[in-house]
Structure formats: C-alpha cells, structure tokens
C-alpha cells in the first residue's frame, strides 16, 4: 500500500515513535563520546530506515534536537545529554542496530527494545589500573627514562588511576577529580626526584600525569570542526582545555608542597 511518493504511509503515532527511537540512538551515541558526524549520520539513517522521509538533527553540547518529516508533517523532540563517559562498545552496538534496521532485519518496536536493553560494558577496574600504570610507564620509557623511572611512574600512575576511579564512582565533578588525581600522581613521583632514583627521575614526573590528558575530546573537537560542526568542536575544545588546566593546577599544587619543580625547570 504505497502512495504517490512511493513511501509506506505512517500514522502520526508511528512517526512519533520513529522520532523517539532515532533521538534515543543519538542520545546514547553522544553520551558515550561519539563524534558529531557519526551521531548525525546514524540518527538520520535509522529514522529513514524505519520509514521517515527525512531526519534533521541539531547537535549541541548538552542537548539534541531532532525533527522527523513525513509528507509535510514535522514532529520535533529534544533530549538533554548528560556525559556518561567514553564507551566505544555502546557506540559499536548502536551502530550495529542501525545497520540491521537499514537491512530491514528489525522493525521499529524491535529497535526500541534493543536500544533499551543496551548496557555499557566496563572492564575490570583492577585490570584498568594495571594497564594504565603500564601505559604511563611505557611513556616514561619512550621519553628515554630507565627502569627506575619506569617503576616510579608505574606506582604513581596506577595509584592515580585508582583515585580517579574512586572519585568518578562517587560522581565528583571531573575538574576536581582531575586536579586531585594530578596532585597525587605528582606527589608520589616527586619522591623519585627527592631520592634521586635512576638517571632521569624528572621524566617520571612528566609521564605519570599523562593518564589525565583528555585525548578523546581533543581529537573529537578537531574532527568535528573539520567536518563542519564548529559549535560542537569549540565546546569540546573548551571542555578539554579546562580539564588540562585543572590537571596543571593539581601538578602545580603538588610541586609547591614538595618544592620539586621536576620537569618544568
């Protein structure tokens, strides 16, 4: 039963459902750190696959506005977006649901059910602590440090990662979290300088705070701006700059306490 335009007719209720499903997918993507181009493409493809004629999405830093169009009828809806931490597994799953809907393997109700069932997967926290400790220690090696620097960096950044997880778990503000974490990491690694462990103890001080570099937001910021989402790019860039600044404040406070300037001098 098709009309002149060749589209299956949608009732108002069906169009509303499609709008809600599409924005739910967009919301999940943005909450878990997808770039704006991906959010826009995925919601549009999902909405069109489910029967809308077109989907228009406005992305902004803390909300999404989405309009679906069908035969001159528009339905618009808005959702707040709270940051829920970067989670690529969620992004993969939403993308997979979108591809399945596009191949007509899922109907609107199935897509909705699948989106509701998605649960963010998290790695075991002790494994993450171990790996981040090793990662920062590898950075100290890449900078040219010896095994002493490696060991000091490992201890400092593994402890810092533990503190960061604890604070994040208690829903502390990320700026406070990053400042406290940087303070602790720098404090621990400055003992390497005080006791002159190894050839370049100052490298450990530089490497142990690298777990706090907001790399994902910075890369997303530039790629958003390159692909035309200037607003989002600026918002992400500003957030990342503020995070970097609170890390610097934490490092500075720790350097003031121990009076070890380390890598800055």
């Amino acid at each position: 039963m098709t009309n002149l335009a060749g589209a299956v007719p949608l009732t108002k209720q069906q169009q509303t459902d499609i709008t809600r499903i599409a924005i739910k997918a967009g919301q999940l993507l943005q909450q878990h750190g997808a770039e704006s181009r991906l959010i826009e493409q995925t919601t549009t493809r999902l909405g069109v696959a489910l029967g809308a004629q077109s989907i228009e999405l406005a992305v902004s830093a803390d909300a999404l506005v989405l309009t679906s169009l069908f035969e001159g009828r528009c339905i618009t809806t808005t959702r707040k977006v709270h940051d829920r931490g970067i989670n690529m597994q969620m992004v993969c799953d939403v993308q997979r649901i979108c591809v399945m809907a596009e191949k007509q393997l899922l109907r609107a109700a199935d897509v909705n059910k699948k989106l509701d069932k998605l649960k963010p997967m998290k790695y075991n926290r002790w494994l993450v602590v171990l790996m981040i400790g090793l990662s920062c220690a590898s950075f100290s090696h890449l900078f040219g440090g010896d095994w002493w620097a490696f060991a000091v960096t490992f201890v400092a950044s593994a402890t810092a990662m533990f503190v960061r997880q604890e604070l994040a778990h208690r829903h502390h503000n990320p700026f406070i979290n990053f400042a406290v974490t940087a303070f602790i990491a720098t404090l621990i690694s400055s003992f390497g300088v005080i006791y002159q462990l190894g050839n370049r103890p100052d490298l450990a001080m530089a490497a142990c705070v690298l777990l706090l570099v907001p790399g994902f937001p910075l890369i997303n910021a530039v790629s958003d701006m390159v692909k035309g989402h200037i607003n989002m790019g600026i918002a992400r860039w500003t957030a990342a700059t503020l995070l970097t600044f609170s890390v610097a404040a934490g490092i500075f406070a720790a350097m003031g306490v121990t009076n070890v300037m380390g890598w800055l001098s």
């Binding site: 970067i86 993969c92 090793l134 990662s135 590898s138 090696h141 777990l211």
Partner: peptide, 22 residues
C-alpha cells in the same frame, strides 16, 4: 618504539571501553 607504543594504545582503549575483540 613500536612495542612500548602498543601498551598505552591498549591501556587507553580499555579506558574508552573498546570491545575486547578489537
């Protein structure tokens, strides 16, 4: 260089919750 760069790539991928098989 490549060996020591692979470790942080995996470490940070785990912070970003990249699926295990990736």
């Amino acid at each position: 260089d490549m060996f020591w760069a692979a470790i942080p790539a995996v470490g940070f991928a785990m912070v970003f919750n990249v699926p295990k098989q990736m």
